[in-house]
Amino acid sequence: MTAKIVITFSIVVIAMAWLVYYWFFGVNLGYKISENPNDWAIFANYLSGTLTPVLTFSSIVLLIRSLRIQLAANNTLESEVKRQKKAEQLSVFESRLFKAIDTQNTSFKDLELVFDNGTHQVVQSAGNAVDALEECLQDLKGESSITVEDIEYTIIEDIDTQGHMFSIIRKFYVSVKLIDIQLTKERGFSKSDKKEYLELLINFSDFDLLRLIMIGMKYCQYPMAVSLAKNIQLENTLEELGYLDYLGEV
């Protein structure tokens, strides 16, 4: 719209310059068209002096308009490049995250915990192992002299003799850490993006596996378990999804 106005204004000014000259000298004074080159030179100077400032101003306005259009195009291009870069980063991240989730779920199927039923030891696997661990914890908590350190010792030394629980907690920690490292503000991601993928990690993880992770967060002092327990955004996400109450019950 600005360019059209400037062009129209310029045409009107040029026409007015011709008309004013014609009216003053041709109509008002009755002059005829001169055949003297000097008169035409004077006429040219008149047009030049009258129109040059106007045309110069119009050129500047159009140049500024052109620069604004170019700047808008550059901003659009820059935004598109950033969007594509973010999409590429997200694609690589999602591939790594889903592989990590598959790995931890596969490892959970191989989980074996050892329990002493009084006469002999019983090995429980996967979900049955988590159920048995919960029962064992309830029994331990029922003892008046038991401490959190005693429970941790029992889990590490007597129940998780093969380190399977430690391995699963470590894999879950790696997935959470991957989200923390990759989905940063510097990479163009927001807290809501991080929350979305934490929810995805939790919802795509086997529920029995999540129960095991939360038991580890509460009772084990593995560095990874402690880090998970102190992760505020993970805690908030677990609470929003209704899983955090489990920590108070177990």
Rank of each mutant, 00 (worst) to 15 (best):
M16G: 10
K230F: 03
K177W: 07
E149K: 15
L137G: 06
Y197S: 06
E199W: 01
K177T: 08
Q233K: 11
L200C: 11
Q104Y: 03
L140D: 06
E249T: 08
K194L: 10
E240W: 03
L140T: 01
C136K: 15
N128P: 01
N117C: 04
S227N: 13
V174H: 15
S95D: 00
Q233E: 15
F189Q: 09
H164D: 12
Y21V: 00
A100L: 05
Y246P: 09
S107Y: 06
F166P: 00
M1W: 06
T119I: 06
N36V: 10
L247Q: 15
S34T: 07
E157G: 05
N74E: 12
Y222L: 12
I7L: 15
S145V: 01
V81T: 01
W40M: 11
T154V: 01
L140F: 02
G142M: 05
L247G: 12
A17G: 07
S190T: 09
L244E: 04
E240G: 07
V130F: 11
L19H: 08
Y153W: 05
C220W: 00
I60M: 11
E143K: 14
F24S: 03
M224I: 00
E112F: 11
E199M: 10
K99F: 00
N75D: 07
N36M: 12
K185F: 04
E78P: 02
E35P: 05
L63Q: 03
L47P: 06
Y243D: 04
R96F: 13
D158E: 07
W23G: 04
G248E: 10
L51E: 06
K86A: 08
L210S: 13
L241W: 00
I155K: 12
M165A: 14
S227G: 13
D180I: 01
I215N: 08
E249I: 05
L247I: 04
I169F: 02
Y197A: 11
